[in-house]
Design a protein around this nucleic acid. Structure first.
Lengths: 170, 170
DNA sequence: CACTTTAGGGCAGCCTTGTTGACATTCCAA
DNA sequence: TTGGAATGTCAACAAGGCTGCCCTAAAGTG
């Protein structure tokens, strides 16, 4: 109860905005917003008998073509067995191509096929549309703050990967 | 390709910040940040053989004591069968008390027991700690933007519930 | 006052997608 | 060249979504 953030003498917003209630609101906002964030792609995926796991695999294959299973595992934070099941169906359905590694034959390099690119684009478009609408609505100032908070919330390892992906495309 | 957001004449950030690449970064930030957002409570839950679903139930029971199963269902966006399984274990473990409704005996009013409050507090504390650290790091300006974007990303129904919860506590 | 309809809630069973365990292949280093 | 480490695959299991079916209580209707 001696939390300085709740100290009565903290008159300015700079301290007051960290009350438990404010933090709780942020937590709930994150919860509800994430539902919205995934809602549009989820609807498309459902019609194709795919799930969010497939979307994630397609997304990161799209933005890092030729990536390996290992790399995808560390980005997605799942076990290789879990990823493998998803990849297997995507390869079987002709959305992803898995080529045996050139230098290291243990590795598999993953690429989207034309059909894979097409679906990934459809999913991305749906998700971006909502993002774009939100960004437009609140303005660049708010978007900058949004990005800052998200980055500050990541684990260091996740932040590292986030930057690596960005830089890889730049 | 005639996307106005990518128009080369858009010199100011006010238009440029909506490129596909910027939106893609936002999407990935959301993905990585959500992992961080749930990481701390997840660790606690794992030691108790609970999952995120239990955390959610505890959270919304805590902030709306006496709420009904129906209400929880609409907040969480899951089916009653799905919620029921989670509630059953929480009631069996003595973390939640389910009282038959007073006016309408079909309803069940849900309350946290003392043990339930204790666990909810532990989970909340862990999650808030990360949120607090992030908020502190980026400052109130950024936090305000963060909240604005999240709210803009919600579906109207989710936004309505988000506000209802806030107002219910105010 | 019965009698049907509607709503809240519970149980059983299925599916996706996480998990660990066991295994094959490939590479590399002793 | 051989044993260990790394990559990826297959099998089996668990959590938590889902639909379907059922019971009880309330509400509407003759």
């Amino acid at each position: 109860m001696a939390d300085p953030d709740r100290a009565p003498h903290a008159g300015g917003e700079s301290l007051l905005f960290l009350t438990d209630e404010q933090l709780r609101q942020g937590i709930e906002a994150m919860f509800f917003a994430y539902r919205g964030f995934t809602a549009d792609p989820d609807r498309i995926l459902a019609t194709l008998d795919y799930g969010r796991a497939h979307h994630r695999a397609l997304h990161f294959c799209a933005c890092a073509p030729g990536t390996t299973v290992s790399n995808l595992i560390s980005i997605l934070g799942v076990t290789k067995q879990s990823l493998n099941r998803v990849l297997r169906t995507l390869v079987a359905d002709g959305l992803i191509e898995s080529r045996v590694g050139h230098a290291d034959k243990r590795e598999r390099n993953l690429f989207l096929t034309e059909a894979g690119q097409e679906l990934e684009q459809r999913l991305s478009d749906a998700q971006r549309a909502r993002m774009r609408a939100a960004y437009r609505q609140v303005g660049p100032e708010a978007v900058s703050g949004f990005r800052k908070v998200l980055e500050a919330m990541m684990d260091p390892e996740q932040r590292r990967q986030y930057h690596a992906l960005r830089d890889g495309r730049a």
